[in-house]
C-alpha cells in the first residue's frame, strides 16, 4: 500500500520514548516503527483543526495526504472512540485507484467492485450502474 504513518500528540519526545518502551513494545514487538511527533503547545494540532484548548491536547484526527501533498481525507473523533483502521485502508485503496485510473468509486466501493467513469453518458444513468445494496 505504501503509506508513511506519522503519529502526533502533545506529549514530549521523552514521554513518547517511555510509552514505547513500557507499553507499546508489549503490544507490538519492537514497538511502533513510525515517527511519534512531539506537538508541544499544540501548534501543529491547531494548523490541522484538532487542538482542544480546554484540555490542552490534540484530539483524534486522521489525515490522508497524497503524493502531491494534497489532503484527500480527514476524520476527527472525540477521544473516547477509537479509529477503524479498515476504513482508512479502504480509503487509501480507493484514492490510489482513482489516481491511477481516473475512474471514481461509488459509495461502499471496495477493491473488485465496479467503479464509475464520469462523463455525459453516465449523467442520469447512475441508477443503471449502482444499486443501493452496493453501499454495504
Amino acid at each position: 500500500m505504501g503509506v508513511e504513518v506519522l503519529a502526533a500528540s502533545t506529549d514530549s519526545r521523552f514521554t513518547h520514548k517511555i510509552w514505547q518502551e513500557e507499553e507499546l513494545g508489549k503490544m507490538i514487538p519492537g514497538g511502533v516503527p513510525y515517527p511519534m511527533i512531539a506537538d508541544a503547545g499544540g501548534l501543529i494540532g491547531k494548523a490541522y483543526g484538532v487542538y482542544e484548548e480546554l484540555a490542552g491536547v490534540d484530539i483524534r484526527g486522521r489525515f490522508l495526504i497524497d503524493p502531491d501533498f494534497v489532503i484527500r481525507a480527514a476524520e476527527i473523533l472525540t477521544p473516547e472512540v477509537g479509529r477503524n483502521v479498515s476504513e482508512l485502508f479502504r480509503q487509501v485503496q480507493a484514492f490510489q485507484h482513482v489516481r491511477k485510473t481516473g475512474e471514481v468509486t461509488p459509495s461502499g466501493w471496495t477493491p473488485g467492485k465496479p467503479t464509475l467513469k464520469p462523463g455525459p453518458e453516465l449523467a442520469g444513468k447512475v441508477w443503471k450502474e449502482w444499486k443501493p445494496d452496493m453501499a454495504f
Partner: peptide, 8 residues
C-alpha cells in the same frame, strides 16, 4: 502517501 494521526 502519508497518514498523519493525532491522538489525545
Amino acid at each position: 502517501w502519508i497518514t498523519l494521526c493525532f491522538y489525545p
